[in-house]
Amino acid sequence: MTDVPTTTKADWTSDQEVRWCPGCGDYSILTAVQMLMPDLDVRREDTVFISGIGCAARFPYYMNTYGMHGIHGRAPALATGLAMARPELHVWVVGGDGDMLSIGGNHLLHSLRRNVNLNILLFNNQIYGLTKGQYSPTSEIGKVTKSTPAGSIDEPFNPISVALGAEASFVARTHDMDRQHMMDMFRRAHDFPGAAFVEVFQNCNVFNDGAFGAITKKDKRASMLIPLEHGKPIRFGENNEKGVVINPQGSAEVVDVADVGESALLVHDETRQDPSLAFALSRLSAGPFEPTPIGVYRAVERSEYATEASKQLAMAQEQSGPGDLEALLHSRPTWEVS
């Protein structure tokens, strides 16, 4: 597209008043998206945001694009139909951890498996916000909330592991305290031809304040966030003194580079077909209190669903010609009555 008009953030901002709680992490995500859009070489009218229900799901109202605020959990399914009907559109799906991993978990899995060309942003705040503070499928065990006064007893999902297990071809993670990193990840998702899944650590300052503070605060990032960069050994730390290796058992492990030497470190390969290493990296951290990888875990191109579906239509028309209703009605044995 060469003749896309130049736009600014303001062009992508709708006239609706934003109604998230003051201080919510969603504001910074919205800003990152609105700032990125003018750089993507796409038209507003070719861009669609689709959401389910939850705080995050209000997102489409604030984008000056086409948008649909659907029902709880079903955004990936609504978006799949739209993307199949109109493969030329840029379809974004926005939802929270309850929306996409609990009530709508099935649709997330299958949209990733099919590799429908969607950019799926999962705002993970590890809590139900809109329903006022129940634990979510990503809350840590022992979470005390209104619905779990004695502490939650179920194991949380690791969204990156879930996506990789669902055959996702693009999987990334970012957080709401780093606008540039968010923009980088969202751009990568947009550029990827297929289902692109981005987990965003997002702070809910009302019901789960500081859930990611131990790793995303400015002074913690160097030691607690492990940047994944394609083709580079995985290193982090205040002085880049830490690294990641794959141990003999096949698990990822944090080591002191001084102990093992740089050559022993895992060189990140986001294009690796086998998802095992990406999965191992997703298991490196048990939660937002340990060093946690961010960036693109996996970006492996494969057939995109809507494109393949369109190809089958084109092939059918090539083989049988365009549909002829009269011929269809006469396609089975007929007889004449005079």
Binding site: E45, D46, V48, Y66, H69
Partner: peptide, 11 residues
């Protein structure tokens, strides 16, 4: 969606 000038949000 795709039609210029008609961007809108429904829900």
């Amino acid at each position: 969606p795709g039609t210029p000038g008609l961007t809108h949000r429904i829900g």
